[in-house]
Design a protein around this nucleic acid. Structure first.
Length: 599
RNA sequence: GGGGGUGUAGCUCAAUUGGUUAGAGCGCCAGCCUGUCACGCUGGAGGUUGCGAGUUCGAGUCUCGUCACUCUCGCCA
């Protein structure tokens, strides 16, 4: 007989009755009836009920076993009496009558309950992550993650992609997020950087003749956390394809993502091909480049209708170059005064000066602003919004950019408050035709997305067009309002790359110094190539229906990028710092705190 | 760095307008209980109300500061 077990805790069935078996697992719960004790023994696979008879010599010990201790039982599988069958458990037809037991690992009193799914503060959960991971929800999330990643590998391999590892210690890249740096011992004063993504490596793999590359790639970015953004590190299903167009990338990703989302969720997934929305249209209709298409509301421009109206607040905004955006919401005209007041408050909380609205009730328009609008304007508005009795139009007047942003927030809020969002679907779209350049705060032209993207008109556009009008073969894939990934057809010509950088104000020497590998590689026959890198953590989040990314990561850091279980980041020995030729100079505030704690 | 929220027993939460000895469920400890499966019953222990000031006859409650966590803006090619 095996040292620890002949079966796992989710395995035994009616057919196994009369067998002598050995099970090991955690004490999930103990039900002590004085003359008989029931123990639910749990492992990764399930629960089995162990029955302990008072005649057994170890009976007295059983009373004192704490939940979550690990125990090994040997005993006989028996049928449960009909009344005691538990249909909730796969093993509920049988139980194991204990003959021998051995304590494998005793547990102290728990900081929080493992067997019960009650809320618990995050700090404690992270400090005792190994206990939290035993709990059903989190355990299942990690299992799901493993299965999804395994399936991704299968599907990608099936599509002819090869998984290739790229370095974790590499060089710092000038653009993008803050790097995590690793000081070099051998080269004083020099640093490695952890890759923000294997971007340049995968492009180099293309120039190395590997036709289709993928990797479940760790990415490191030293930026602040969000609910859907884990600090420090995250994973991408990174991929790149040689001699490929934008459509080729879409086709592969639609195939893979549609399969993953269909196989690992009960929600209805959009048919492929997914909808494609040009960036400018997305900004117009949704005020966002990651619209939640479950929300049927759209934003429309009503500026012209207000340009000459008597409502000076709106006319004034239009006259000074601003816009009036409107959202038509059907069937909510009869909502309470509080509903509309709350919407105004919400709009103000996201930076709006106000939120106008018109309600059509019993053929009448009810609104504080109605008296300023002519009947003609009113009719034009009705036509624009496609509204009638029982409907409402909301209005935001502001500068273009602000109105767009506020419109997006109001659209989301209305979608939620009016319960327009179907929780049982996954709505996908591609956002395409991103602009290559945009103006920064100082009015300077800069890359709006990724400096490695191919301008759509190639050299001709770069030479002739206003930089702000140049579109890039740059795309995002969005699911239910979550940006899963960005990708692009890459610029594979070093000549074109230098010109593209020139427009953003960078000299040829910048390209040569900062991107020496690509610059060199592209001079020796680079294949046209394109790729994308869907965020694995976010995909799992959507599949697991979790609002927070920490719920799908086994050992996440907290919001301040600390690992409370391992104690990272932590101090190191003086010798280690010295070997790296570093000196530590603490900010004044931290220094004072250190002194205070010494006293 | 800015803004919002939270902080009361090991855990989750309650505590009226500022008013007696800060309560409940789970957990823990002791006892009872032979068919439970969130077992049940009886009893018990457990609190610097995050920390520090202030206002007040009186502060969990109000004010200021501070710390921690979280959400968010900035940031995330």
């Amino acid at each position: 007989m095996h040292r620890y077990r002949t079966h796992n805790c989710g395995q035994l069935r009616k057919e196994d009755v009369h067998q002598i078996v050995k099970l090991s697992g955690w004490v999930h719960s103990v039900r002590d009836h004085g003359g008989i004790i029931f123990i639910d023994l749990r492992d990764h696979y399930g629960l089995t009920q162990i029955v302990v008879d008072p005649m057994q010599p170890f009976y007295k010990g059983v009373e004192h076993w704490r939940v979550e201790s690990t125990i090994c039982f040997t005993g006989q599988v028996v049928d449960r009496i009909p009344d005691a069958i538990n249909p909730k458990l796969p093993t509920g037809d049988i139980e194991v009558v204990a003959r021998e037991m051995e304590t494998l690992g005793e547990s102290q009193v728990l900081p929080f309950q493992v067997s019960k799914d009650e809320e618990c503060n995050e700090t404690l959960r992270l400090e005792y992550r190994f206990l939290d991971l035993r709990r059903e929800t989190l355990h299942d999330n990690i299992v799901l993650r493993s299965k999804v990643i395994s399936r991704m590998r299968e599907l990608m391999t099936g599509e002819g992609f090869m998984e290739i590892q790229t370095p974790i210690l590499t060089s710092s890249s000038p653009e993008g997020a803050r790097d995590y740096l690793v000081p070099s011992r051998i080269h004083p004063g020099k640093f490695y950087a952890l890759p923000q993504a294997p971007q340049q490596f995968k492009q180099l793999l293309m120039t190395s003749g590997f036709d289709r590359y993928f990797q479940i790639a760790p990415c490191f970015r030293d930026e602040d956390a969000r609910a859907d953004r884990s600090p420090g590190e995250f994973y991408q299903l990174d991929m790149e394809m040689a001699f490929a167009t934008q459509e080729d990338v879409f086709e592969v990703n639609e195939k893979v993502l549609h399969k993953i989302f269909t196989e690992f969720s009960d929600k209805k997934v959009d048919d492929i091909p997914f909808k494609r929305i040009p960036y400018l249209e997305a900004m117009d209709k949704y005020g966002s480049d990651k619209p939640d298409l479950r929300n049927p509301l759209i934003i429309q421009d009503a500026s012209e209708l207000f340009r000459n109206c008597d409502f000076k607040a709106f006319a004034g905004v239009v006259a000074s170059g601003g816009v009036v955006k409107t959202i038509a919401a059907k069937g909510c005209a009869e909502k309470s005064r509080k509903f509309f007041d709350d919407m105004i408050k919400f709009a103000q909380s996201v930076g709006s000066k106000g939120l106008g609205y018109l309600r059509w009730i019993d053929g009448e328009v009810q609104s504080p602003i109605a008296k300023f609008l002519s009947e003609e304007t009113m009719n034009q508005l009705k036509e624009l919004g496609g509204v009638g009795d029982g409907d409402v139009m909301f209005f935001i007047a502001d500068k273009e950019k602000e109105a767009s942003l506020i419109g997006a927030c109001v659209r989301d809020e209305l979608g939620q408050r009016l319960e327009l969002i179907d929780p049982d679907v996954f709505k996908f779209c591609w956002i395409v035709d991103f602009p290559m350049y945009e103006l920064d705060d100082e009015g300077k032209v800069e890359f709006s997305h990724n400096p490695f993207s191919m301008p759509q008109g190639g050299m001709k556009d770069i030479d002739e067009k206003d930089p702000l009008d140049i579109l890039a073969y740059q795309y995002d894939i969005v699911c239910n309002g979550t940006e899963l990934s960005s990708g692009a057809v890459r610029n594979h010509s070093s000549e074109l790359m230098i010109k593209a950088f020139n427009i953003a104000g960078y000299d040829q020497s910048v390209v040569e110094e900062k991107f020496p590998a690509l610059h060199r590689a592209f001079q020796y026959g680079a294949p046209p190539h394109a790729g994308i890198a869907p965020g694995v953590d976010r995909i799992i989040m959507l599949l697991a229906n979790e609002p927070n990314i920490r719920e799908v990561i086994a050992f996440p850091m907290n919001q301040k990028a600390q690992d409370l279980l391992m104690g990272a980041p932590g101090e190191v020995e003086f010798n280690q710092v010295r070997d790296l030729h570093l000196q530590i100079k603490l900010p004044k505030k931290v220094e004072k705190e250190a002194e205070a704690s010494e006293e």
